[in-house]
Amino acid sequence: MTPTSHSAVASDPNDEGTLVAQAQAGDGTAFAELVQRYQRKIYRLAKHITQNDEDAEDVLQDSFMKAYEHLKGFHGQSKFYTWIVRIAVNESLMKLRKRKGDRFVSLDEPIDTGEEEVKREIAVWEGNPEQQYSQEELQGILNEAVETLKPDFRTVFTLRDIEELSTEETAEALGISIPAVKSRLLRARLELREKLTRKFKRKGDNAFGYV
């Protein structure tokens, strides 16, 4: 990288690192820009994990408040987005635990990922669901499918396949091992595939296979 291009990147006012540095120096507008940038994603993440509107609202607010309070302690080891996701995941899991009447919800204990041979629905999909359903209808179908997953699976799926964190970032955010992320992701993907295939399969296709 040439010095010129480096300075161009460093001075980009929309660059995440620049905004974080400005916010750390006390610039409230820069922090507001970061909130503006990520609030919808954080709200979506919280809704997926908690499956509750009120809890998602609390998580959204509490996560950004905490980020603001601890901003000076953020040293840029990870991206700001990964950091705020980690805060939001912790807040969401706390809500889940509370709602379950203090029944312990843990993401770091071994669980049965059920990878034994199971009967699976084998059918091709009828066209493209994005063209066949309105955005709202499709959103409803996808949310309903995620809602049926166990919290461990839907949390990993949300981070990896919706928020597009890497396997390593997901493991770090949840405090679980990389193999645990991989096995939960596989199970979540296969379960969702199964549920959506039931919805989107070509009419008349009713094949099942043991795989």
Partner: peptide, 28 residues
Amino acid sequence: NCFVIVDTTRKTLQVYKGMEPQEIPEDV
């Protein structure tokens, strides 16, 4: 069978990735 599973899993991931985050309600 595995070909169909791969194809429908790919499509599953595509529809989720294509999903725009919903607007946050104004009051929230």
